[in-house]
Design a protein around this nucleic acid. Structure first.
Lengths: 351, 351
DNA sequence: TTGTAAGCGTTATCAG
DNA sequence: CTGATAACGCTTACAA
């Protein structure tokens, strides 16, 4: 046997053509059977399925995507995969979307718009069916890439006016105001905000702004001290931040944290210093982590709609991909969870 | 102009052919320029790059993958994306692999071998360059799918003898023994193990076995009570488990937990009951979570090599994909972190 | 160095 | 309902 003039890499994989030959039908029929089984006669269906089983055929989605110009791939960018809030969201998205045959291409930006751009660029090369980003801050180039293509885009976890397309999230400024309001209602009169990575975490910064605004509106413009602990280990950083804060501003009686780990660190430091929480100082965190309800005192917090965001993003995407009209903004709100770290002690504080 | 007999969907995307036409060269030259720029003359390179820029060409990796039979996609299955340990691993894998042009297709199995199988099946349809699984427990069909294909497979987070291909992890039985040893050294003589999801989390179960073995070997075969808190909210479950345990076995003086959240829950319950940790009872967790070092008492724990696993898996994969020979088993060990919850109080306990 | 042409494994179109 | 046949956008042997 002389081989044909041009040999090519032989992938040695079972292809649809193999199945077709084996079952004595054409490739198109096999393809049809795979996509719309109802439109193939029973006898042929059986023979094809037999062939698939005995040959161990696995469809090649790459080829299918190329031919049909529909990849069923969705690119998702989150700031961090280790942050369990985003992990929850992605997890729910993946559950919902995989049921409809979509695959997630996941990347993390480390809170950097440049890394996000680089991820978006890579994703675009996969001609994804849709792209999901976290937040509203993108580079100019990211915006250009995304607006110049017909691919549906969802921005999640934040709300605002500069949306590219669809928005699913909640207002962090409102969350900050609610946290401040809660502390004020608990009797606090001098608030502070301690946050990690405020320089790069826009959502945390928005909550800080919310707290500031609250001080202006409801506490006669008392200053709200904002401390950024940076990017180090959060718990230790929180302890140090608390020490600094109480040294420089001993009158602070309520602190909002950008997450519950910081709040826990502060609680530990307070205990070490003999400061009573919430009696001497009330605290409220953000995130409602696993541990927030099982430490002493338990941590008051704001619970973001982390799972709901995933569900709603998935739903919006599925609708959009089916051509259905979709809402451009979905505000899922948040839940303030009052616990011991900010328990009302009005009799003492206000007395 | 009569259109050709068979019209086809027109994706209206800029293709390599467009770039070729625009710059007056052939498509293969453009392709070459993109893959090995050095082999194209300077003048042509310039013209091609010009065309790419003005046309805004984005390569179609799908088509490339199909043609070259190399997808640069890696399928990864973790039990849960919300578990920050796996998240850390995946995060590091993604960082390392994306630098080499690989994309991660991520899925979570919810600790179910069946869901893992379904994910593997889906991944296979993308003809991935490699597959990464968590643990060693797979369905028979998963094994068949994987062994009957030449795709490199890495199993991570566990060590054992039934490996499919490459293994990167550490011994959970050893970890359990080390945890027990640590408590024994701290003066404990009656140990117990409290774990979440023991029914489905094989690694936690292995650690429980390690603790049991330790009781047999080093505590004269004293019984080691093992409690499974199931799948509910961990902190609350831990509190209840502790109550039950101390009611039924008041002599227990050391507890190993399957993670630090459970340990924290137990600490809270102990405080509520006036039981002193570690004085009355010593505790050790697993995972070295964010909060473990910032609660009171701080939580002794075992720190798994979560980032290192990601790094090593990536490295093994890159080597393997470049045809280099690789080690089939990489034992990364673990680190026992002694903190306050198990601080030695020998004078009292042993006195 | 550059071009030609033959695939890669599907799906879409259209004729039977 | 079934089957040719032409894309899909790219890579790669091979020729020039």
């Amino acid at each position: 046997m002389s081989s044909p003039q041009r040999s090519r890499r032989s992938t040695k994989r079972v292809t649809m053509t193999d199945v077709a030959k084996f079952s004595g039908v054409s490739a198109s029929t096999v393809s049809l059977y795979l996509r719309r089984p109802g439109e193939v006669s029973g006898s042929l269906s059986r023979r094809i399925q037999d062939a698939i089983d005995t040959l161990g055929y696995v469809p090649n989605l790459m080829a299918g995507a190329l031919a049909s110009a529909s990849t069923r791939v969705i690119g998702v960018v989150v700031p961090s995969m280790v942050n369990s809030m985003f992990a929850s969201t992605v997890s729910r998205m993946q559950s919902a979307l995989s049921q409809h045959g979509y695959q997630l291409l996941l990347g993390h930006s480390e809170y950097s718009a440049e890394q996000e751009e680089s991820l978006v660029r890579t994703f675009m090369s996969w001609s994804p069916s849709a792209i999901v980003l976290t937040g509203l801050q993108h580079t100019r180039e990211t915006r250009r890439l995304l607006t110049s293509s017909p691919i549906p885009v969802v921005e999640m976890w934040e709300l605002g006016s500069s949306a590219l397309d669809t928005l699913v999230g909640f207002s962090h400024e409102e969350a900050g105001r609610a946290q401040a309001r809660h502390l004020i209602d608990a009797g606090c009169r001098r608030l502070a905000f301690i946050g990690a990575r405020l320089g790069i975490d826009n959502r945390a910064r928005l909550r800080a702004t919310g707290v500031s605004d609250a001080c202006r509106d409801w506490l006669n413009d008392t200053p709200c001290h904002i401390i950024d602990t940076g990017t180090g280990r959060m718990a230790e950083a929180a302890r140090e931040a608390l020490r600094t804060l109480l040294t420089e501003h001993p009158d602070v009686d309520g602190i909002v944290f950008s997450n519950d780990v910081l709040a826990l660190g502060a609680i530990t430091e307070a205990q070490a210093q003999g400061i009573r929480v919430p009696h001497d100082i009330a605290l409220i965190g953000f995130g409602d982590m696993d541990f927030s309800n099982c430490c002493l005192p338990s941590i008051s917090t704001v619970r973001p709609p982390r799972e709901e965001i995933g569900d709603q993003v998935a739903m919006a995407l599925l609708d959009s991909l089916q051509g259905k009209p979709i809402e451009t903004t979905v505000d899922l709100g948040f839940k303030l969870v009052a616990r011991e770290s900010s328990a009302l002690s009005a009799s003492i504080k206000l007395g």
